[in-house]
Computed example of a mutant assay.
Amino acid sequence: MNTYIIGYDLDKPGQDYTHLNEAIKEIGTWWHCLDSTWLVRSTLSATTIRDRLMKIMDNNDELLVAKLSNEAAWFGFNKNCTDWLHQNIK
């Protein structure tokens, strides 16, 4: 299982993030402590995750899915966010 960072920018004003957020949650165990950034633990590949999410995005939106290494540093998150990071970035 890998941990992926997913970042997106929905370019249409007033865009509803609900469907995209629900699709990301279905990919695996997730962390969402930044507005348009998610971390997800999943058995899926980055390409498969991208392809799933692209289906519910507009053509002018932007999406990044990248596998994380076992090194990370962070600042300012609450205990729940920090605990998830410690447990899932390996």
Rank of each mutant, 00 (worst) to 15 (best):
W31F: 10
L64H: 01
D83W: 09
V65M: 00
K55S: 09
N2M: 12
D83C: 12
T47S: 06
A66R: 10
N60T: 11
T29C: 01
K79F: 15
K25T: 00
A23M: 04
D9I: 11
L64S: 08
C33F: 12
I5M: 09
D51H: 11
Q87S: 06
A66S: 15
F75C: 03
W30F: 06
L63H: 10
D16Y: 02
A72N: 10
A66C: 13
N78E: 15
C81A: 14
S45T: 15
I89C: 15
N59M: 00
D61G: 05
F75Y: 03
G28N: 06
W31Y: 09
R41W: 04
L34M: 15
R52W: 08
F77P: 11
L63G: 01
K12Q: 07
G7K: 00
Q15T: 12
L20F: 10
K67S: 04
T48V: 13
Q15N: 12
H86R: 04
R52I: 05
I27A: 02
L20R: 10
I27N: 04
A46F: 09
T37D: 02
I24N: 05
W31G: 05
M54R: 02
H32E: 08
D61L: 02
C81Q: 13
Y17G: 06
L53P: 05
N59F: 00
A46R: 11
M1E: 05
N88W: 06
N2V: 09
S42G: 00
A72E: 09
H86N: 10
G28W: 03
K90A: 14
T48W: 10
D51R: 08
S45W: 13
I89T: 15
T48S: 14
L53A: 06
E22M: 01
E62N: 07
K25A: 08
W84P: 12
D11C: 12
I89M: 14
K55D: 02
H32A: 05
K90I: 12
